[in-house]
Amino acid sequence: MLNENNDILKKLIAETDLEKAPGGFTAKVMKKVRAEEKSQSLFDPGGFLSPQYWLLIGSALGIALIFIFSFDIPLLSWLIENADLRNITKILGQFLLNIQAYITQIDISTTSIAIFAGIGMLILIDRLLRKRFAFGIFSL
């Protein structure tokens, strides 16, 4: 279909000059790349811990949250109220008690909390798997 023999178009187009990227282009790109890298290392969980560790931490945190907020734990309340703890720990304890009281007040069932925690975990796992096995339009 395309007769390229002695084609003046081919010859002329081949001789045309390429558009030149403006001066300092590479430096500007690298500046953006480094800024992006910096922000990724701050917010990306993979920046300083491997995904497996984050999965483990996330699971532990999820289980702990379900445990703390779903059940009335007398020992935990007693420890926070009676133990001779430092001020900062007391504030933290009070904060936890407040959240617990709030959760009890809104009368959320253990099943609902478990469902929310489960959804959270699934999102976390999805994110980790997507990062690990990323296939997209650019994975040619």
Partner: peptide, 12 residues
């Protein structure tokens, strides 16, 4: 180029 850099790990 920024997109290319971010997607480079998926370039096979």
């Amino acid at each position: 180029f920024l997109k290319a850099y971010n997607s480079l790990k998926t370039f096979q």
